[in-house]
Design a protein around this nucleic acid. Structure first.
Lengths: 140, 140
DNA sequence: CTGAAAGTGATAATCATTCTCATAATACAG
DNA sequence: CTGTATTATGAGAATGATTATCACTTTCAG
């Protein structure tokens, strides 16, 4: 295992670990520049790919295709969401209904589980009170 | 509710309902042309957005940002996966560990649940036996 | 009819992500 | 050390799915 990281990679991992919010690659690159560091965008993406494979960080892909990254080790980030398919808002739910039994089963499949995602999709209360279907395409 | 659909919209919904595989918008557009129909790509996307809001279809976003659509009503499609963060393969798991209790809780939140996704991420058996981290960036 | 509203398709624009490639840093054998 | 092979890096181009634009059709209520 090549478990030795470069300075750039360490910086990026530290930034993710120290941040309480999940971050996109673009956002991460911007913050790096704010800190006066000079790490190219390509390196950010390469490092995220590496850290992901090493099981250090987790990835959440939003419906519009952008990826957000956060540390796996923080309990704080183990959230699932109720996602409105209309307005796109995500409502975090601070419970995880997965029993230990299921986790064990996954491991028994010879699959090494780093983390899991559980997302619910539907309409939030606000959007249920609208004639959303007719508004859906009108923006065009 | 504008529950009346156009011919194009009906064709697209029918195609999704009749297909046992989940399909991307691009793939869907290609198949439409194969059937001799002339529906523009923009209309395909607009219709998918509409059907999604109406709760007719479900969307799964892959880590590389592409969306795949399938009918909600088919039991066949209610699958969760073990996703390898290295090779990208998805291994379907034909169980759903979510209890009815959780589903009820979601509804109690005034959130109208259309469907949910549950995905596990980690390393598959094959990838656990490789020096993946060192290979990760070498392709570049 | 008829005219406003909604739907459509060709194409351009967007934008996160990946690729390219020349250069810089690092590792390492002799 | 010292040269050399390997890996990492960054600037910018390329990619490709998705979205926006806009002129043209279709729908349908009155």
């Amino acid at each position: 295992m090549s478990n030795k990281r470069t300075k750039n990679q360490e910086q990026i991992l530290k930034l993710i670990n120290n941040n309480s919010e999940e971050m996109s690659a673009q956002n991460l690159h911007f913050q790096i520049q704010q800190h006066g560091l000079r790490i190219g965008l390509a390196t950010v993406y390469r490092t995220l790919k590496l850290l992901k494979i090493e099981g250090e960080i987790q990835e959440r892909v939003t419906p519009d295709g952008e990826s957000f990254y956060s540390t796996i080790n923080s309990v704080y980030h183990h959230y699932h969401h109720l996602n409105c398919v209309n307005c796109g808002k995500s409502y975090p739910m601070n419970i995880c209904p997965l029993s230990q039994k299921i986790t064990d089963w996954c491991h028994s499949q010879k699959f090494k589980v780093y983390y899991h995602t559980l997302e619910f999709f539907g309409l939030c209360a606000a959007c249920q009170d609208q004639d959303i279907a007719s508004e859906c395409l009108s923006a065009n």
